[in-house]
Amino acid sequence: MLLKRAIGVAAGAAVVTAILVAPASGAGQADLDSAVREAMLAERGAAASADFGTPVLAEPLVEPTRSNDQGWAFGTTTIPAPDVEHAGPHTAIFVAHRQAQGWQVELDGTAEFVEAVERAPADVVSEGEKQLFARNYENSRVAVADTGLGLPWAEGVAWWMGGGPHGDSGQSRPFSSLDFNGGNGQVLSAGAGRVYKSCLRNGSGLVRVVHENGFSTTYYHMTGLTDLGDGQPVAYGDYLGRIDVGLPCGGSTTGPHVHFSLLRGDSHTKVDGQTIGGWTFREGAQAYGGYAERNGTQVGTGGRITNHGQGTSTPTGVVESGQNTSVNVRSEPRLSAPVVDELPDGSVVRIKCTARGDFVDGVWGRTDLWNQRDVGGWISDGFLYTGSDGPIAPAC
């Protein structure tokens, strides 16, 4: 029988004990809540305290979403953050099975959790979720050079990076989080996976997407949350919520934004050196500093970066036509070349390569840089927002 791991300290070393909370008469909801809280504090309490800079002050919130009469339960549990600067809640997905000795509780991101959800009946954990959790766990142990994730807004659009790499709770390590705002305010899933919501209060909550590639992403401060139920599939770019100042489980915020965090396995992972949305993020000496880098261009905190989508193979730009309603696409990077297409303002252009040609006085000033589309034709960089003043694609 699997026993829940609990972390204690003996002569400076971690020791393993078992947590089995004996069921009271009826083995009801209160017993489940107690078991999940105890497991959450044992496994994640120390990390939460370190992030918060203070001992855990509130009991973990337990939100079961499914159960059956065979003694199985599934849901989320969250340690609320204290009301201190930029603190963020800690959350986990749990599966629990009631046995004679008490509830056996497993938290996501571990081999024990994968084994437990595999044993759980399909009315509590779907077959699709079982496959997802198994793949996520296996892939979380494999080194990758690119997350395969986009940024959490529409592809080809630029948002403000209001906060560079920082901890899930501000100064805490690792620097796993980024703050973004801009555009239409709609926060979109950074990749395909399944969605889970926790700490649902006052129209806000903490949204998490578990991805097959070993990563999970979380999104905090939002309102207008997706109406998708826990465990439902989401695709890259699916709507999750809107930027706001929601604090359903503590923390603080100075204005509407999304607090976007990256996790692997059962813990946060640094964004330093990770490529997301075509940008590689670098942390600074202090939290909220650092920058995003792409093709030699660096954008620091307070700057705008364009979501170039999943992976880095095809850069993109957005047509900015200025006083016009459209921009000409020419057969060569010359103003005298024939017009082969017209693109309306706001169109997303996938860029194959770049070259120097005729100078053009565009929205972004005078430039001789031209971009060749992946479907053919040339558009002046003066009418294309790419998040950079220089080339973002290889030379043609």
Rank of each mutant, 00 (worst) to 15 (best):
R282V: 13
G148Q: 08
A122K: 06
S126A: 14
N324D: 13
E293N: 05
S49F: 03
V258T: 15
G162K: 10
W160Y: 14
D179M: 13
G150S: 15
R141L: 15
N371V: 02
R356M: 12
G163D: 08
G156F: 09
N213P: 00
Q286W: 08
P248S: 03
V299C: 12
F180Q: 04
E127G: 15
P344W: 02
E85C: 00
G390K: 10
P89A: 11
R264F: 01
T306A: 09
S336I: 08
V187A: 02
K4P: 10
G284R: 05
K352T: 05
G357L: 09
G231A: 09
V36A: 10
Y137V: 03
G8K: 00
T301L: 05
R294N: 09
V245L: 06
A100D: 07
Y291F: 13
N213S: 13
T147G: 11
R141H: 14
L247M: 12
G224A: 08
A292M: 02
A337Y: 01
V271D: 10
Q70R: 14
A395Q: 13
G214Y: 07
E106S: 11
T91C: 05
L206Y: 03
A81W: 03
S34M: 12
R135E: 15
A6M: 12
K130E: 07
G88Y: 06
G109T: 11
S126W: 06
V157P: 03
G376K: 05
V271S: 09
Y239T: 02
V207I: 15
Y385V: 07
Y196D: 04
A192Y: 07
G311A: 09
D51Q: 14
R194W: 06
R373V: 01
V360M: 12
G12W: 09
G164W: 03
L57H: 00
F180K: 04
P152A: 06
L188Q: 15
Y236D: 05
A92W: 04
T386A: 06
E59Q: 07
R304V: 01
D368F: 07
